[in-house]
Nucleic acid binder design. Structure first.
Length: 213
DNA sequence: CCCTGATTCGC
DNA sequence: GCGAATCAGG
């Protein structure tokens, strides 16, 4: 495989988006993460920050120096879930033995309808009991819920067939429509979900009870 | 063990 | 320039 302009462009874009070298390699195909990393370095992109021009960097003279460069919020807010200080330590048995591998259409908190739907919102709600019982909103801690919604924006949005042993299998969207995919972020080793989703999927019974009232 | 990026160095 | 092997770390 060769680094065509197109492939390099994809590399730059994805690297800029904070995608990992392995994910980029997988996307490009035909290359390993090592190749991607090597290319990244040769391109001088190692610095995921150093956005636009490097000329505007220091400049400021001793006295005239304005306020320190505020940390850019957009870019990569770092992995850690800001709203989950105490990730419910040892999950004392999920309220329901997580569906695991297959196609867990179990949880799905308040999936769709977060932001102004893309106009073309499909409202196909088949008859019968389309959605399995799901935890009531008030049974999910506000922190965890906020965290999950935040994560969903960053989710890889992978289809069922791309789920692996270690990708988060948290379903997002309505299974009855095309507006459905899986989180896909790296899952916690041994668990079916990523950190944020583990936070809402596995909760101590006591916590649930307390919140439910 | 899974993963991450960084570096080296023969090709 | 390329990228496998390796290193260092989470």
């Amino acid at each position: 495989m060769t680094w065509t302009d197109e492939r390099v462009e994809t590399l730059k874009r994805m690297w800029g988006e904070g995608q990992s070298a392995s994910q980029i390699a997988k996307e490009l195909g035909g290359v390993t993460r090592n190749a991607v990393i090597g290319k990244v370095h040769r391109l001088g992109l190692s610095n995921r920050n150093a956005a636009s021009d490097e000329t505007a960097a220091p400049a400021a003279a001793p006295g005239t120096a304005g306020p320190p460069p505020a940390p850019e919020p957009a870019a990569a807010p770092a992995p850690a879930a800001p709203a989950a200080p105490e990730p419910v330590a040892a999950p004392p048995r999920p309220t329901t033995p997580a569906p695991a591998a297959a196609a867990p259409v179990q949880p799905q908190p308040a999936a769709a309808s977060p932001a102004p739907a893309p106009a073309l919102r499909k409202t196909i709600v088949p008859a019968g009991q389309p959605l399995p019982p799901q935890p009531a909103l008030n049974e999910i801690s506000p922190e965890a819920l906020a965290s999950v919604r935040e994560v969903e924006k960053r989710a890889r949005r992978i289809p069922l067939m791309e789920l692996t042993e270690r990708t988060c299998k948290w379903p997002i969207g309505d299974p009855a429509t095309d507006d459905f995919w899986f989180c896909g972020l790296p899952s916690q080793s041994g668990k079916p979900y990523c950190e944020a989703h583990v936070g809402v999927a596995f909760q101590p019974m006591s916590a649930r009870r307390d919140r439910r009232r």
